[in-house]
Simulated assay, not measured.
Amino acid sequence: MSAAASLRRIGVPRLILHASVLIICIIWLIPTLGILVTSFRDAGQITSSGWWTALTGAAETSAARLGDPASARQDGPNYNISGSVFDGGDVKSGSVVAFGTRVAAPTEFEAGKEADLGDGEKLTVNTDGSYFYVKSGPFDDKRGKRIYLSITQPPNFTLNNYRTVLTSAGIGQSFINSLTVAIPATIIPILIAAFAAYALSWMKFPGRSLIIALVVGLIVVPLQMTLIPLLTLYNDIGNLFGVSSRSYVGIWLAHAAFGMPLAIYLLRNYIAGLPKEIIESARVDGASDFEIFVKIVLPLSFPALASFSIFQFLWTWNDLLVAMVFLGTGKDQLVLTGSLNALLGSMGGKWEILTASAFITIIVPIIVFFALQRYLVRGLLAGSVKGG
Score class of each variant (00 low, 15 high):
Y133C: 02
N156Y: 07
Y148R: 06
R146F: 02
K145L: 07
P155Q: 13
R146S: 02
K135P: 02
Q153K: 15
Q153R: 15
T127W: 04
T164N: 12
R143W: 00
I147W: 04
F139P: 07
N160A: 09
A169Q: 15
K135Q: 15
S130P: 02
V165C: 12
F132Q: 03
R163N: 08
R146N: 03
T127E: 10
V134Y: 02
Q153W: 08
T167R: 13
G120R: 08
G170R: 11
G137Y: 09
Y133E: 01
S150E: 14
P138Q: 13
E121V: 09
Y133K: 06
Y131H: 04
N160Q: 13
R143V: 04
R143C: 00
F157W: 13
G129P: 03
R163A: 09
F132Y: 05
R143K: 14
P138N: 09
P155V: 06
P138V: 12
D140K: 14
G170V: 11
L123G: 09
T167Q: 13
I147C: 04
D141T: 05
I151Q: 11
G129K: 01
L159R: 06
R163F: 07
K122A: 12
V134K: 10
G120L: 01
N160H: 06
K122F: 07
N161E: 06
R163W: 05
S130A: 06
T167N: 12
T124F: 01
N126W: 03
D140A: 14
L166R: 08
V125I: 15
K122W: 08
F157C: 07
G129N: 04
E121M: 14
V125S: 05
